[in-house]
């Protein structure tokens, strides 16, 4: 674990149960500014649940999560304010189908951050340009391909100028030939030192851009290491078995 400075996100004894089924057990993780954390593991291991707990889309049933020093699990915390600083990208894109791309990108900055239309649109168009979709600003989501939708979804989160980006299997719903364009955008983000937490099955990509890779199984992280070590010299038996199957 890199120990430079204070953690952006501190997860302490996080637990989550759905009824009698415990999905997450006593998770402790620090995520620092500039970290690109990849969470991998078999399906059903709790990866997505962990990620969704970080911005409380899932309510944790135990433990605390400190984001910029504030416990966001605390019911008294204004979670909506903190979510503005935590961008999230979903497997199913979840663009707003009744709005143009530009409206998708500007509605939150305008309504939540009090930005003027000009300001919000300027930011949106600049970011759109960087993902190569400036010419689609007036299109509706249904007119875009999956890869384009996911790039827009990333831009939508970026328009809020978040401190951290959470990716929940961003390429799992894409046709294979569209995975690359989305990974390129994420690669750029990593280069710019955006703090990222990524749940994915793209092992090659994890190896390429992660600063840390964490292996989750049975509701907890059982191994974490820098990518080279993680993939070439796994220690845990379950991780070895997992990597044997997916690599």
């Amino acid at each position: 674990m890199s120990a430079d400075g204070k953690a952006l996100i501190e997860v302490k004894h996080l637990g989550k149960s759905f009824g009698s089924i415990q999905v997450l057990k006593d998770i402790n993780v620090d995520i620092h500014e500039g970290d690109v954390v990849f969470v991998v593991g078999p399906s059903g291991s709790g990866k997505s649940t962990f990620l969704r707990c970080l911005n409380r889309l899932e309510e944790p049933t135990e433990g605390n999560i400190f984001f910029e020093g504030v416990d966001i699990v605390d019911k008294k915390t204004d979670i909506d304010r903190h979510r503005q600083k935590m961008g999230m990208v979903f497997q199913q894109f979840n663009l707003f189908p009744h709005m143009t791309i530009l409206k998708n990108l500007t509605i939150a900055p305008m309504k939540l951050q009090g930005k003027s239309r000009q300001e919000a649109e300027a930011t949106a168009l600049e970011l759109l340009d960087r993902v190569g979709l400036k010419d689609r600003a007036d299109a509706y989501p249904s007119q875009l391909s999956g890869g384009q939708k996911q790039r827009i979804a990333i831009v939508r989160a970026l328009c809020m100028k978040p401190e951290v980006m959470l990716f929940d299997e961003p390429t799992s719903a894409l046709d294979p030939e569209m995975v690359g364009e989305v990974l390129n955008v994420m690669r750029e983000l990593a280069k710019e030192k955006m703090t990222m937490v990524v749940v994915t099955h793209e092992m090659g990509f994890a190896r390429e851009i992660a600063t840390r890779v964490m292996f989750m199984d049975g509701g907890n992280f059982i191994e974490e290491a820098p990518p080279e070590e993680f993939f070439t010299n796994p220690k845990n038996e379950r991780l070895k078995a997992f990597l044997g199957k997916v690599l």
């Binding site: 889309l57 909506d80 979510r83 979840n94 707003f96 309504k111 989160a157």
Partner: peptide, 21 residues
């Protein structure tokens, strides 16, 4: 789709704003 609600909430809209917009 529930994903629409989640996308709205993840941007920082509260429940009412997400419903409305």
């Amino acid at each position: 789709d529930q994903g629409q609600l989640e996308a709205g909430r993840s941007l920082g809209f509260n429940y009412r704003q997400t419903m409305w917009y």
